[in-house]
């Protein structure tokens, strides 16, 4: 279990983390989203023990991470600027990983050659950005970690490789109970692979939910009422209501069935419940809609 409690980190007077709190059960896949500059990377760098917090606490299975080799040996990380030695080949980096991770499996490394068709004797420096990412995944997966901390990991990977990498990750999650914390702007992809999501903004985690809960408790209703009727909906928690022609689009904090039941008595001409995508949840939670409208008005 990863527990981050009220983390504060200040860079040159700027509070990059401002009381960030997050909890991640073992075996779950947690997607961290948030606008640029929200503090996602800073948070991940604390969890992998790169940064030391000013205030707050990070516990992995109850132990502190900072300068704790035993805990860090259980965490594989793919940061956005993945490190390799300037002259190293893939095979040489593999030797380094093998030394760092007691759980490293050479067998797995060899098996994964099929998934990552790159010559292991190549100098990593001469590989393309996407191929370097592949190498990072190759070595991280071979390390057989309990925790994977990934910062925008599939950036630069081609669509086939993205699917393959996520497939391999999901296999690890289901067979070994690997815990994954991943930050990404690709909400479509997060929706597939995550069971929990967190939204960060201004150095805080502002929303943290299981995806099931989100899908079951929030729904988009598209309703057309009878001509001339605009009933006040009683007992329906409407978060957002927009109207185009006669069609109302409402974001309602209810499960789809009860939302439809609740509006039935107003005898709408059309009533449809559509589940929200992560992208929509993100937009509503961030008040992005208002921003959008403002920018058009200006």
């Amino acid at each position: 279990m990863i527990e981050v409690k009220s983390l504060v980190k200040t860079f040159d007077g700027f509070r990059a983390l401002d009381g960030a709190t997050l909890k991640l059960e073992n075996g779950s896949v947690y997607g961290l989203m948030g606008p640029n500059g929200a503090g996602k990377t800073t948070l991940l760098r604390h969890i992998t023990g790169v940064y030391r917090q000013d205030e707050g606490e990070i516990l992995i299975d109850g132990e502190k991470v900072w300068e704790n080799v035993a805990v860090k040996a259980r965490i594989a990380s793919i940061p956005d600027d993945w490190f390799f030695y300037g002259q190293a080949t893939i095979k040489e980096m593999m030797q380094l990983y093998k030394g760092l991770y007691p759980s490293f499996s050479v067998e797995r490394y060899n098996a994964l050659k099929e998934a990552f068709p790159i010559d292991e004797n190549k100098n990593i420096k001469y590989l393309s950005k996407g191929m370097q990412k592949q190498v990072a995944f190759w070595l991280a997966l071979s390390s057989m970690p309990d925790y994977m901390i990934l910062d925008e990991p599939v950036d630069g990977l081609d669509p086939v490789m993205r699917r393959r990498v996520w497939g391999l990750m999901m296999e690890d999650v289901s067979s070994r109970g690997t815990t994954v914390l991943v930050s990404s702007h690709n909400l479509r992809e997060l929706e597939d692979v995550c069971d929990h999501v967190g939204i960060m903004n201004h150095g805080k985690v502002v929303l943290e939910r299981s995806l099931l809960e989100l899908q079951d408790n929030m729904v988009k209703l598209q309703i057309v009422f009878k001509e001339g009727e605009e009933p006040e909906l009683l007992g329906v928690p409407v978060l957002h209501d927009s109207k185009m022609g006669r069609v109302h689009t409402m974001i309602v904090r209810m499960c789809p069935e009860s939302a439809l039941n609740a509006v039935k008595r107003y005898e709408p001409v059309v009533a449809e419940a559509v589940p929200l995508t992560l992208e929509e949840i993100f937009v509503y939670e961030m008040g992005g809609l208002d921003n959008e409208i403002n920018s058009i008005l200006i």
């Binding site: 896949v29 996520w166 497939g167 999901m170 296999e171 289901s174 597939d192 069971d195």
Partner: peptide
């Protein structure tokens, strides 16, 4: 199996 399908479709095993 859940594992095989999760791997094949690249989606969360819980789903």
């Amino acid at each position: 199996s859940v594992r095989a399908l999760a791997t094949q479709l690249s989606i969360n095993p819980n789903t």
